[in-house]
Amino acid sequence: MIGALSAATMSPNLLTQTPQTTTADLVRGKARDAAQKFESQFLAQMLGQMFQGIDTDGPFGGGHGEEMFRSLLTDSMAKEMTKAGGIGLADTVQREILKLQGLT
């Protein structure tokens, strides 16, 4: 029989029950995303202040182009730092967001 479905012909993955996503899980995911974005913005501001005093002229400087694109560089560096674990700010912010929502 072509096209007949039985337990023997079905994939084992189709037979397992998938976990149901609850509203609390969605809130936790959104809280984590918001906390990571907050940490990334914080780090970008901190890196921006750190790079503010660096002279862009000289033999290896980027000149006016470096000044223009420095904010993009600091944003990208901050996002990568956050992905790599950051400074722990996202965990604290997420915990506080969930506490305000009544979740722990």
Rank of each mutant, 00 (worst) to 15 (best):
A35C: 01
R28M: 06
E39G: 00
S76P: 03
V27T: 14
M81F: 07
D75Y: 04
L14H: 09
R28W: 07
A78M: 03
E39M: 00
A4E: 15
G88F: 01
I54F: 12
D55F: 08
R95V: 03
A34Q: 07
D25F: 07
T16V: 10
T92Q: 10
P19D: 04
F69K: 02
I2V: 13
L100G: 10
Q49E: 14
G3R: 08
F69M: 06
T21F: 09
G53E: 10
L100I: 09
L5W: 11
D33G: 06
Q94M: 03
T56I: 13
G53A: 09
K37V: 00
M68K: 06
G85I: 00
G61F: 04
I87Q: 07
R95F: 03
I54N: 03
L73T: 09
Q20S: 12
M46F: 10
D57C: 11
F60G: 14
M68V: 10
G53W: 07
D33C: 02
G3F: 06
G58T: 05
T9R: 05
T74Y: 03
A7L: 15
Q36T: 02
G3S: 10
E39F: 00
A31F: 00
A34G: 04
A4Q: 15
L15S: 07
T9N: 13
F69A: 09
R28E: 12
G102Y: 05
T56K: 15
D25T: 07
K99G: 04
G58I: 03
Q17C: 01
T9E: 13
M1G: 14
G61Q: 02
T56E: 11
P12Q: 11
T74N: 03
A44W: 00
F38M: 09
F38C: 03
L103V: 01
L43H: 03
L15P: 09
H64S: 13
T74D: 02
L15R: 11
T18I: 11
F60S: 15
M50L: 14
L26F: 06
L5N: 12
H64K: 14
Q101A: 15
P19R: 10
R70Q: 11
M77L: 08
L26M: 13
M77V: 02
A90W: 00
T56D: 14
L43C: 05
D91T: 06
M77R: 00
S76D: 11
M50F: 14
T82H: 01
N13C: 06
L89S: 01
R70I: 12
T104G: 10
F51I: 11
L98Q: 01
F38G: 04
R32S: 10
M50N: 08
L72A: 15
F69H: 05
L103C: 01
D91S: 07
T92F: 08
K37P: 00
T82F: 01
K83F: 07
S6T: 15
V93Y: 05
I87K: 00
F42W: 04
T22G: 12
S40Y: 04
F38N: 02
T92E: 13
G102K: 01
F51Y: 13
A24H: 09
S6A: 10
F42C: 03
G48I: 01
L15C: 04
T82R: 04
G53D: 09
L43K: 02
P12S: 11
K79S: 08
